[in-house]
């Protein structure tokens, strides 16, 4: 039972991390109708920059700040230089161009930081554990991720539902020609939404840096999970992204933690372990296939 609670928390932590990534991606899909395979690159940029700043200065706050700014800036530049030309293009063209961006960013980080992965210390302030329930210590830093995830989700909710900008974003997601008719400067709006998405991805990267090895290509493995999230949640829906992210986070974590035992318990076969390992890796994809088979547009289709 104690283990279960711990694993649920781990699942939530992964879920909120995925939410930071998928919120931006789903907005970019929904508002600009753009498939961006390179979204994971901003995550990677955030992580690399934060790890470097942290090593140089020892200040997590500074690392966070610089990481966010650089990720957002990269997003803005990418939007202005490349993606702006592709909004009206076929999805395939977008796939090809953003695939090119991935190659560029992955190799670029290798050129700057080399092939060895970087490691980042958990900031001292958050390095301990707390007893969340009697007998269950849990790392503060992981709790911090859950809390910041919650804060970002609330912030996004307020931004989208209670501000002028949010109204325009919502209008854009449901009816593209309408916001043009409203006289909103679409170019500016698109750049802003894109940069915001990149910033959030960078945020996820900074937060992930102390937990995972910071290395070239780290963006892609998590990006695929992110795609699963937004497809499950329904493309263009931030609410769907949140629920999808938590669902994927929990299913993935709990599956990996408990499926092997469960299978072992059900059959004493030698193969149980390796079968369980593969089943639990496949879990979220099975989930996605099952959801799409019954709801081909995801759980909360927007527009």
């Amino acid at each position: 039972m104690l283990l279960f609670i711990e694993q649920v928390l781990n699942g939530l932590q992964l879920g909120f991390m995925l939410f930071l990534l998928s919120a931006g991606l789903t907005l970019v899909f929904g508002v600009m109708n753009l498939i961006n395979l390179a979204h994971g690159s901003f995550y990677m940029v955030g992580a690399y920059v934060a790890a470097t700043v942290m090593q140089a200065t020892g200040s997590f706050l500074l690392a966070l700040l610089v990481g966010l700014i650089m990720a957002g800036l990269c997003g803005l530049l990418v939007e202005v230089i490349v993606l702006r030309h592709l909004y009206k293009r076929d999805h395939l063209d977008q796939v090809l161009a953003t695939f090119g961006l991935i190659l560029f960013f992955n190799e670029g980080t290798r050129m700057i930081w080399g092939r060895q992965p970087l490691f980042m210390q958990v900031p001292e302030l958050f390095s301990g554990s707390v007893e969340i329930l009697p007998g269950i210590p849990y790392p503060v830093y992981r709790l911090l991720i859950i809390v910041t995830g919650l804060l970002v989700a609330t912030g996004l909710y307020l931004l989208i539902n209670h501000t002028r900008l949010g109204m325009r974003i919502r209008a854009g997601a449901s009816n593209r020609s309408m916001i043009a008719a409203l006289g909103v400067n679409i170019r500016w709006l698109y750049s802003l939404v894109f940069a915001l998405g990149a910033l959030l991805a960078g945020f996820a990267g900074v937060m992930a840096a102390p937990l995972f090895a910071v290395e070239s290509g780290m963006g892609e493995s998590i990006l695929i999970l992110t795609f699963v999230v937004i497809v499950i949640g329904g493309i263009g829906s931030v609410k769907g992204a949140l629920l999808g992210a938590l669902l994927v986070g929990l299913v993935d974590t709990l599956g990996r933690a408990f499926l092997p035992d469960l299978l072992q318990w059900m059959s004493a076969s030698d193969n149980a372990n390796s079968i369980a390992a593969s089943l639990s890796s496949m879990g979220i994809y099975l989930l996605m296939a099952a959801i799409l088979a019954f709801k081909p547009r995801g759980l909360f289709p927007a527009g």
């Binding site: 890796s281 496949m282 996605m288 799409l292 995801g298």
Partner: peptide, 21 residues
Amino acid sequence: IHFIMITLAFAQMLYYLFISL
């Protein structure tokens, strides 16, 4: 886009399946 993603998902499933063999 959903087709793009679901085909990706099936390929990933096979990827993990063969890792486990």
